[in-house]
Design a protein around this nucleic acid. Structure first.
Lengths: 123, 123
DNA sequence: CTAAACACTCACATCGATGTCATGGGCAAG
DNA sequence: CTTGCCCATGACATCGATGTGAGTGTTTAG
């Protein structure tokens, strides 16, 4: 399939797909005229990229974790593992932050409800 | 206290503190010469702001949720409540995304470990 | 009094993923 | 051949919180 179809299937814009390739997250074969060709595996790969990007990872981290431009090497795998552990730690602490924020928000919501109840009584 | 001390106590830069004020997240009284004066309550307030910013909320949302520039009104409280519920939904779905990403990451880590184990056997 | 440390405002720079526009080639249907 | 749609590349724009630097006034310690 060409880029338009991959875009439609994944929800990623054509612009983004080209960007992912430029950043080494995605490879494509090219037709004789230079157009990008993809297969079903690429749909899954883009989904993974989207999952990671949505989690706030940078394209550089993703490229290091899930190389696609070169053969896997022991050295690269070790580096990838280090990056993955780092990102995992970051993810977990971000999740904690978000849960803390949600707790604070719940508290505020409660306060706000009380204020509105009092206002209703008074008014 | 002046801005330097508030910065030291909260970890927010002076630049950020002035920005929060400009965005309506923080108020300060001014000394005759124009310097900002804060009290202990401001330390807590900045902590709350940091919690929300770290959760990816915008200063505008925070300003709507926790107004400090004007008297609370029923209308404003209703608006604040709407924003809070919206942010809460967003937070929850972001947390879900992060946990999904962490799951995907764990899967990759496992694959990577297997690869390294095989490489060690072969090498 | 003086020097150091702090504060003020204003303006410009930064980062990263993505949007958008310009310009031009590729290909199928009429 | 032409019209219309898809694709290619490259350059510039965007957003929001924060960094940074210039130029100037303020407070405090010696």
């Amino acid at each position: 399939m060409r880029i338009g179809e991959l875009s439609a299937r994944t929800g990623a814009s054509r612009r983004s797909l080209r960007y992912y390739e430029q950043q080494g997250l995605l490879v494509s074969t090219r037709s004789p005229s230079g157009q990008r060709c993809y297969n079903d595996d690429h749909v899954e790969r883009v989904a993974l990229i989207q999952t990671f990007l949505a989690a706030g990872m940078s394209t550089m981290s993703i490229a290091q974790m899930v190389p696609c431009m070169s053969e896997p090497t022991t050295a690269k795998a070790l580096h990838a593992l280090a990056v993955m552990n780092h990102e995992r730690t970051r993810l977990t602490s971000t999740i904690d932050s978000l849960m803390a924020a949600r707790g604070a928000l719940d508290h505020l919501i409660e306060i706000n409800r009380s204020f509105l109840a009092n206002a209703a009584d008074a008014g």
